[in-house]
Design a protein around this nucleic acid. Structure first.
Length: 676
DNA sequence: GTGTTTACTTTTTTT
DNA sequence: AAGTAAACAC
């Protein structure tokens, strides 16, 4: 590895990379080469002879972790198998994987996502006799999540759930499961109760690097402090803090300065990404925030670029069509590939209309919104089978597939089992065994037999995988057959076998992706548990940057990315800033502004802002017409211009298309689509 | 015990 | 609009 650090980095970056000893805080503005600095820093450490296993880099999203690992490998040009680059949550999971025994869980614990969590909370509530018709398990379970993550508290009406919370926590232990928040909270508990274990982890990592530091929560900060020594480097930008709703606390920047008084603070304000107009707009907008470290991005190239374009539309589908039309125009006039465009939305719901427009015009696109592949019913069923195999006490998984395909265990049977389990404070698996040993009557006997044949299926699966008789993917394919799942799909969709085939295909895709993962040389542990831990933490598909496609993303998902041209539809009061953040109490307008800032700074050359008066909201049209976002007024007028007049620079067919587009929005309902 | 109909809410953002 | 959960019929 030969890297000329001084030549490949600017002076501030160079300092950030080479200040390897002692605490460092890097305040890195948008587009200042933050990821680059981290990658080079890792390379620097390795070039100094630091062993890979002594380096820990923590990021916030799977996507960032993956990208960082890939870029580091490319730069260093050798495999980095012993380097730890992971998210806080998966790092927490790996700590628990080794040492959860100290806390009274078993190593084969399951990781619950929010739907498992909500369901578990619901079970507990039912058990405790809450009236289920008014009980909102999603709401309560996210309250519990906040509680566990160390923000939010039980107050007022919510006090009644205190006992329920305790019950929920107990039930997780019975299920031998932990939830997302436990992945951070439990390692902290572990370290507090077992200093020897803490010392072992701490001694392993000599150099610790934290990315997106502004998005870390207080607990994550504590976890960092438990692991790191004095050679710790935090990289962040308070202006890009957009996760406070899940406990991110950019007060950690101040805390860090206080906890490491002698730290070196390095500021990266040189922006290599955007034109002068875009930077000026971004700086102007963010300067309205009172709570921030003062800084200003500047462009070393000094190019001004084109003004930002703002346009208004009668409704959201007209807005979507305008975005598509503009892209087609630029693609032609500037020879831009599709992947030069990013369409950034505040909410996933906004993406729908745009997706329709893209599909209609056959524009290739990728999206990170919407439920992930792993959320699909048939895929979740398969994962549930695997989870039961790994951890038979995982009741949420058991209840999901115990009668899928139908085994004649209906509502009554389920209630019987769950009732028995709850009364003895054991999992359904154990309850099934108890029933088998001491059945009372014919029905119980039959029930017990069915339950045990279900578990036998999963045990067989586990044994094959663990004895390495078959790789996971092959074992899964067999399981689909042995469980009769394929036949079940056919029966479920008797009237359209297309749907059945589609679902079967998804299962095949799952098996194929497992196979790929198993064969990947970077997979250190191709075991069942490792796989499940991995997929549990993937809540969203990170679309592998497919080339040649427009990106349609939420602003949150777009953080860290950049595009030649960015579209920002929905610049309306209520969307951006979002209504939920404007209303009384917990709302945080500054965070919304940061979100707007993040969106603006994704653009390299062109930025198109748009808004519309009427938006379609679940069926009907929105009650009151929307007003323009108050953030728009914060952009200096000199940087903005309106859309070009309709006919300018357009081909005849485009003009014609526009004409029909207008007709459609004026009269509605022209064409095959139905009107709400 | 299972299949069908009806009532109803929903996610702001993500690990 | 869509998808789920509960209510209802078989």
């Amino acid at each position: 590895m030969r890297i000329d650090f001084a030549a490949e980095l600017d002076p501030e970056q160079y300092r950030a990379v080479t200040t390897t000893e002692g605490p460092v805080l890097i305040v890195a503005g948008a587009g200042s080469g933050k990821t680059r600095v981290i990658i080079y820093r890792i390379a620097k450490l390795l070039s100094m002879g630091v062993p890979q296993e002594a380096i820990l880099a923590l990021t916030f999203t799977n996507k960032a972790a993956k990208e960082m690992a890939e870029r580091a490998r490319t730069l260093v040009r050798k495999p980095l198998r012993d380097l730890t680059i992971s998210t806080f949550h998966s790092f927490g999971a790996s700590i628990l994987r080794k040492d959860i025994g100290h806390l009274g869980w078993k190593e084969n614990f399951s990781i619950y996502d929010e739907s498992d969590r909500a369901r578990a909370v619901k079970e507990c509530a039912r058990e405790m006799g809450f009236s289920m018709d008014t009980f909102d398990s999603w709401k309560i379970s996210s309250l519990f999540s906040a509680l566990r993550a160390g923000h939010g508290e039980l107050a007022g009406d919510d006090m009644q759930y205190r006992h329920l919370y305790d019950e929920y926590r107990k039930s997780l232990n019975v299920y031998n499961a932990v939830d997302f928040d436990d992945l951070i909270a439990m390692p902290l508990e572990l370290f507090a109760a077992h200093p020897d274990v803490a010392a072992r982890w701490k001694s392993r990592y000599r150099y610790v690097l934290i990315d997106e530091f502004q998005d870390t929560s207080r607990q994550q900060y504590d976890l960092m402090m438990a692991i790191c020594g004095n050679d710790v480097c935090a990289v962040g930008d308070d202006d890009q803090s957009i996760y406070s709703w899940r406990g991110a606390d950019f007060g950690n920047l101040l805390r860090f300065e206080r906890d490491f008084p002698g730290l070196a603070e390095i500021r990266l304000e040189r922006n290599y990404r955007s034109t002068g107009s875009i930077l000026e707009a971004a700086n102007a907008v963010i300067s309205h925030n009172a709570k921030r470290k003062k800084k200003a991005l500047w462009s070393p190239s000094g190019s001004v670029g084109t003004p930002l374009v703002i346009s208004e539309h009668p409704d959201d589908s007209a807005e979507a069509e305008a975005v598509v039309a503009e892209m087609k125009k630029l693609r032609f006039s500037e020879h831009l590939p599709w992947d030069a465009f990013g369409i950034l939305v505040r909410t996933n719901a906004q993406a729908r209309v745009i997706e329709e427009a893209l599909m209609e015009t056959a524009v290739p696109y990728r999206t990170a919104g919407g439920p992930s592949f792993y959320q699909r019913k048939e895929v979740r069923d398969m994962l549930a089978y695997m989870r039961v195999a790994a951890n038979p006490d995982d009741d949420m998984a058991v209840l999901r597939v115990l009668n899928v395909p139908r085994r004649g265990i209906g509502k009554a049977g389920m209630e019987r089992l769950v009732g028995l389990a709850r009364s003895r404070n054991v999992s359904v698996h154990i309850a099934g065994e108890m029933l088998e040993r001491a059945p009372d009557g014919r029905i119980a006997e039959k029930l017990a037999a069915e339950v045990s044949s279900f578990f036998a299926l999963t045990v067989r699966f586990r044994e094959r995988v663990q004895s390495r008789a078959a790789p996971l993917s092959a074992a899964l394919r067999d399981l689909v057959r042995d469980a009769g799942y394929w036949r079940y799909l056919l029966e479920e969709h008797r009237d359209d076998d297309k749907a059945a085939a589609w679902k079967y295909r998804n299962i095949e895709l799952l098996a194929a992706s497992i196979e790929r993962w198993e064969k990947d040389p970077d997979t250190l542990d191709a075991g069942l548990f490792a796989y499940l831990a991995r997929v549990a933490l993937v809540t969203r598909d990170d679309p592998d940057d497919e080339e040649g496609k427009v990106s349609l993303l939420t602003i949150h998902a777009a953080k860290g990315l950049e595009f030649d041209t960015v579209f920002l539809p929905g610049c309306e009061e209520g969307i951006m800033p979002h209504a939920k953040s404007v209303e009384e109490g917990g709302g945080d307008i500054e965070e919304e502004r940061r979100l707007f800032y993040v969106a603006i700074t994704r653009a390299r050359k062109r930025l198109f802002l748009s808004r519309c008066a009427a938006r379609r909201v679940r069926g009907g049209t929105q009650a009151t017409p929307s007003l323009p976002s108050s953030f728009l007024a914060e952009i200096p007028a000199g940087l903005l211009r309106g859309p070009e007049s309709d006919t300018q620079g357009k081909s005849e067919s485009e003009i014609a298309k526009d004409f029909f587009g207008k007709m459609r929005t004026m009269f509605g309902g022209a064409g095959p689509e139905k009107e709400a």
